[in-house]
Measured scan of single mutants.
Amino acid sequence: MKVIFLKDVKGMGKKGEIKNVADGYANNFLFKQGLAIEATPANLKALE
């Protein structure tokens, strides 16, 4: 799943980066902790 990092995550990515991560990792950790959001077309447009 493609995500946009909202904060730096050690060993994974930096704020503003777009990366592919495992679905479970994104849903169970990154999204719940507020560290990333899904890289949807609307979210990608908002990032620009």
Rank of each mutant, 00 (worst) to 15 (best):
M1S: 06
M1F: 09
M1K: 09
M1V: 13
K2E: 09
K2V: 07
K2S: 10
K2Q: 10
K2A: 09
V3R: 00
V3I: 10
V3A: 01
I4L: 10
I4Y: 08
F5H: 00
F5W: 02
F5M: 06
F5E: 00
L6H: 01
L6V: 10
L6D: 03
K7W: 08
D8T: 08
D8N: 13
D8S: 07
D8M: 02
V9C: 05
V9M: 05
V9I: 08
V9A: 03
V9Q: 01
K10T: 13
K10Q: 13
G11A: 05
G11Q: 05
M12F: 13
G13N: 01
K14T: 09
K14H: 10
K14E: 08
K15P: 06
K15A: 11
K15W: 06
K15F: 09
G16K: 02
G16Y: 08
E17T: 07
E17R: 01
E17Q: 10
E17L: 03
E17F: 03
K19W: 11
N20G: 08
N20L: 15
N20C: 14
V21H: 01
V21C: 11
A22G: 12
A22R: 12
A22D: 15
A22I: 08
A22E: 15
D23L: 15
D23I: 15
D23F: 14
G24H: 15
G24F: 14
G24P: 11
Y25S: 08
Y25C: 12
Y25T: 13
Y25D: 09
Y25R: 06
Y25K: 06
Y25W: 11
A26C: 08
A26G: 05
A26F: 12
N27Q: 15
F29V: 14
F29E: 12
F29R: 05
F29S: 06
L30H: 01
L30C: 02
F31H: 03
F31D: 04
F31L: 14
K32S: 12
K32D: 11
Q33K: 11
Q33A: 10
Q33H: 14
Q33P: 02
Q33I: 08
Q33V: 09
G34I: 03
G34E: 08
G34F: 07
L35C: 05
L35H: 03
L35G: 02
L35T: 04
I37Y: 04
I37L: 10
I37W: 05
I37R: 05
E38G: 04
E38T: 05
E38R: 09
E38C: 08
A39F: 07
T40R: 04
T40C: 04
T40V: 04
T40L: 05
P41L: 12
P41K: 10
A42C: 10
A42E: 15
N43P: 01
N43G: 06
L44V: 13
K45I: 14
K45F: 07
K45L: 12
K45V: 13
A46C: 14
A46L: 12
A46R: 14
L47S: 07
L47D: 05
E48R: 07
E48L: 12
E48V: 13
